[in-house]
Design a protein around this nucleic acid. Structure first.
Lengths: 215, 215, 215, 215
DNA sequence: TATGAATGAGTCTTCATTCAT
DNA sequence: GATGAATGAAGACTCATTCAT
């Protein structure tokens, strides 16, 4: 009574991933090495080990499949990112922020690729943007953990009370982003130099936000 | 017998722009409103008022034409950018930096589009990157004016002598870039709020780099 | 300066048909043996001896090409039909009408095929109908010659003065049409029997419209 | 264990219509609003509330299903038609024929759609034609009642004895058909004008077949 | 050199049919 | 028998590139 399973996932037994899932995973993986504009439905089908038409049994069209794959990537980025969130009181502020910034920079390097594909396809960007805001996934969610951390450190007296923690967050995200962009845009860039550049930037921030003697 | 001039530029006489130039200018303008992936050779030819085939008399292929057009855009961005460079001693540091950061953010918003197109087409990115470094046009050139300005202000005593001006430059570029990205990615973003976000970030930098009392 | 000619028509010299024309002619011929719904762009291109894409250099899409081909067919039918129009006074009314009816029936057999294709494709029918009425090509134009002929015969006293010539025209068109339909729908029909059926119907009309003794 | 009944008809109990029947009915209904060329097996299955594959448990292929559905439509047309057959002696000949002609014209308008679909698909037409003649369903069957009626009126002296009733039948079918065609092909046609056209044509027939004074 | 029609590989998508469950 | 996902051969259409004129 149940219809047959696709050969590509059949060997995984009844409790393996569904084919929709398999298609999304495949698309996701392809996007690792293939730019969005160059991704074809045939490529996806071949890579997934299924026939060309199968996509349309699971998604209304290519855009829907790609959109969901991108959303997954984004969700994964967000998850990865949240693991990197520093916890107030453990280690020094500078060491925490530097560790966090490196993780963030890695993340942003991936996000840039995702974003570049979207920026190059306005229809997809629009759809992505709409979708991203139906879940509490907006950019704000990415910033909040750092804002909270900085607030906690300020309360603990490790950061000057006059400091605008949102502005500091912008600086950390910005510095990490610039370094990520440089890395992305220049595949031959010297990794160590970039890491040092980021550490120096974060160091400068930290010096600026340290508690100051009351004048 | 002199070779024929394309109808589109013929009326300009023999000393007008060459057809290569005309094609580049046209492509450049089209990229203002058309994403790289959606740009076709026919569109360019139509917009330039020439025949489809003429492109291949002046460029080996589409990529070469687009690459040179992108380089022009980039060069224009750099020029625009240099006009915004602050001069030490005129006005306060914070006001100078905020003005500069807004100009930079506008610039980066445009650069992002350019970059997104490149990131979405690895072959083009590679070629672009190679080309950009044959002229002294690398990212370093963009940073240098700000580094110089900060150095001058430091010498004048307006910035703490311990400050790493390169790191501060990274922070300014980063904050401006993040704001530019937010604006690009979210077409419905509130412009005033973003401006305020950037001002706050720059303000925080400035507070951090102010000369400090010797302890 | 002139672009090359398609191989398919190149040998005909500069004054041969244009490729648009060639495509229309080819489509027209294919429609002789292929039903509209089964006609593919590839078939047309193959039959025309050109590449697949060439159609789109001459027509915005398949429908436009097919529509124009159908309009040609229709125009040809109308032309053929007008040659068959009887002239008052030459031969007897019954002989004239029978000859005309056979020509009309042949015509309608072809028109039916055309019409069937259209009826099966509402979008095409709509476009066809609109187009057909931009030129004075409507169904009225087909009827008018027969109406005129009957009017002339009535004036000559060969047809009873009380006769409604439009109604008689409807009868002639109807009888010819039914016979045409029978022939079309039944490929194995006996041609002679159908001819006799049509002759009998026309004969009956003629008997009915003969001048009558005043009562 | 009795085989499972499809969910769609299961609630009707074991004595409801078979699934074949249900599929045919559904297809029949869909053909009311969907042109033959645009009808897909999935549409049929969805409309019938059954799975896609079930069709192939009851019919060798799509054509067989559609063919039988078309035969049903045709049978229904014939039935409807037979109800309209005039009875000799009731009312005047002209009134009877006009009423009959309008019914016939309505019928033919429906038949045209059926026929157009068939004409647009030669393979289906062939199969339909073969099938139609295995039952006593040919076009002859449609004509016979009118032939009989006219014969009866002739015997009653209401129609001239010299009249060829088969030929008159051809005229009535033809006039009704032309009007039906005009209506079908031109959705914006003026209904009243077409009715009047048909009445005039029938009137002309009747005048022509009235008993004549012996000369 | 300019022209612009011709080329054809490649894109997304549809749909009748199959078949493991 | 019923299910409905899988299949893959088309179909219409696009577009960078070529080339006779």
């Amino acid at each position: 009574m149940a219809p047959r399973r696709a050969a590509a996932i059949g060997h995984l037994g009844d409790h393996g991933p569904t084919l929709s899932d398999h298609l999304l995973t495949t698309t996701d993986q392809l996007l690792e090495h293939t730019s969005l504009g160059a991704l074809t439905t045939r490529q996806i089908a071949r890579a997934a080990g299924v026939s060309d038409g199968v996509i349309y049994n699971h998604f209304p069209d290519k855009q829907a499949l790609v959109l969901q794959a991108l959303l997954r990537r984004y969700a994964r980025l967000v998850d990865r990112f949240e693991l990197a969130t520093p916890v107030a009181g453990e280690e020094s502020v500078i060491s925490q922020l530097q560790t966090f910034a490196h993780a963030l920079s890695d993340l942003e390097a991936d996000a840039l690729l995702l974003g570049a594909g979207l920026l190059a396809d306005p229809a997809l960007l629009e759809a992505f943007w709409t979708e991203i805001h139906r879940v509490p996934f907006g950019i704000g969610r990415l910033r909040q953990p750092l804002i909270d951390y900085l607030g906690a450190e300020r309360d603990r007296g490790m950061v000057d009370p006059s400091i605008d923690v949102e502005a500091v967050t912008t600086l950390v995200f910005g510095a990490s982003g610039i370094v990520a962009l440089t890395r992305r845009v220049n595949p031959h860039a010297d990794r160590a130099a970039l890491d040092a550049q980021l550490d120096a930037a974060i160091g400068t921030i930290v010096v600026g936000i340290e508690p100051r003697p009351t004048r």
